[in-house]
């Protein structure tokens, strides 16, 4: 048979109402340059749209960006939406202007990693890579 040719597939999304997606685009390009296949979904996405797209695209991880301060509501909402579409195994990573005191709440809500403007890109790339690898171990088929 043909050789396995798997690539890490991730989805980058920007939930919420603010219209800035510089951060999200930057991460998308960074991951592409690191060899990822990045599905980019643009600004102002609802948690339901993000979850549905992640399932259809069969991504191994989701990266969310939020600058509006609504991360406490929006990031967990995506985790919840994934549960509703029977895909709780897809890890969610989040980045943006997020104060440290929110980290614990977000982690408890199921956010796998949190990045802030100060996080070095190597660390972000490694986190996505690890999240993908961990996902392959967890999911059932293939």
């Amino acid at each position: 048979m043909t050789k396995e040719t798997r690539k890490h597939r991730v989805l980058i999304a920007k939930p919420g109402l603010d219209g800035h997606d510089r951060g999200a685009k930057y991460i998308a390009r960074t991951l592409r340059d690191a060899g990822f296949e990045v599905v980019y979904t643009g600004i102002r996405r609802t948690p339901e749209e993000i979850a549905a797209a992640a399932v259809q695209e069969d991504v191994a991880a989701i990266g969310l960006s939020s600058l509006s301060g609504a991360h406490l509501r929006l990031f967990p909402a995506v985790v919840e939406a994934l549960r509703k579409v029977a895909a709780p195994d897809i890890p969610v990573l989040g980045g943006g202007v997020i104060p440290e005191e929110d980290f614990t709440v977000l982690k408890e809500a199921g956010i796998a990693e949190i990045f802030t403007p100060g996080t070095p890109v190597e660390k972000i790339i490694a986190a996505f890579s690890d999240a993908c690898e961990a996902h392959y171990q967890k999911r059932n088929i293939g």
Partner: peptide, 10 residues
């Protein structure tokens, strides 16, 4: 890089 930015879905 072998990577890709897939944006049609937007």
């Amino acid at each position: 890089s072998g990577g890709a930015l897939l944006g049609d879905r937007i």
